[in-house]
């Protein structure tokens, strides 16, 4: 896969914009998922994931072709997510509790169009809970946890993506796991 991608990158550098479409196809799901788990919101995730691909295209000349393209792309996406998290205004959250409806969130009050089977509802609720707990992690722990357990990357790759020493990555993963242990123990 990396070989095809490298070939496409050379074409893009020569000015062939269409070759970039194939690169987007290869990585779109992974980048979108990374952004979604970082931001906890589909709309924002789409926004940032698209921005990441556009930035990668604009800066393609600064990409070191000896490295993995995915590493570089994930770095751009992760940095954009962290920027977005830090700039986020805390005045409105879809999952904020509505007064007088303890336990119910605005999210669960949004009517769904078709009723789902009970176990699917349960599974969706569990998914929401897990995502909410991931979203509660400070961004420096959130990024390593998402890269390790959702994107399933090695510690070395994570250290390259985040441009951090391996030791720092390990420490952050340990702290992230500790936080999640406490948050998810009663789920």
């Amino acid at each position: 896969m990396e070989t095809i991608v490298k070939h496409r990158i050379k074409q893009v550098i020569k000015g062939d914009q269409n070759a970039y479409g194939e690169i987007v196809e290869v990585y779109k799901d992974k980048v979108f998922q990374l952004c979604y788990r970082m931001l906890g919101n589909r709309h924002e995730a789409e926004d940032i994931a698209q921005e990441a691909f556009i930035r990668a295209y604009i800066n393609i000349n600064s990409f070191n072709q000896n490295l993995k393209f995915s590493t570089w792309l994930y770095r751009i996406a992760t940095n954009l997510c962290i920027d977005r998290i830090r700039k986020k205004k805390p005045d409105y959250f879809l999952d904020a509790e509505v007064p007088g409806t303890e336990g119910l969130t605005m999210y669960s009050q949004v009517p769904s169009e078709t009723p789902l089977p009970e176990d699917e509802v349960e599974s969706l609720e569990l998914q929401d809970t897990i995502q909410k707990e991931i979203s509660k992690l400070p961004d420096k722990y959130r990024s390593v946890i998402v890269l390790k357990y959702i994107e399933e990357l090695s510690l070395n790759e994570i250290s390259e993506i985040l441009d951090l020493p391996l030791g720092t990555v390990k420490t952050r993963i340990h702290r992230g796991r500790e936080a999640l242990r406490q948050q998810l123990r009663h789920v």
């Binding site: 914009q17 779109k28 799901d29 979108f32 569990l126 897990i130 946890i145 357990y149």
Partner: peptide, 22 residues
């Protein structure tokens, strides 16, 4: 905790994602 995080289903980018990027 790890198993729960890993259990989150894999989600896909919207269908028009690539055309929007392009």
């Amino acid at each position: 905790a790890i198993a729960l995080v890993q259990s989150t289903s894999h989600i896909h980018a919207p269908d028009d994602f690539t055309s929007k990027v392009m």
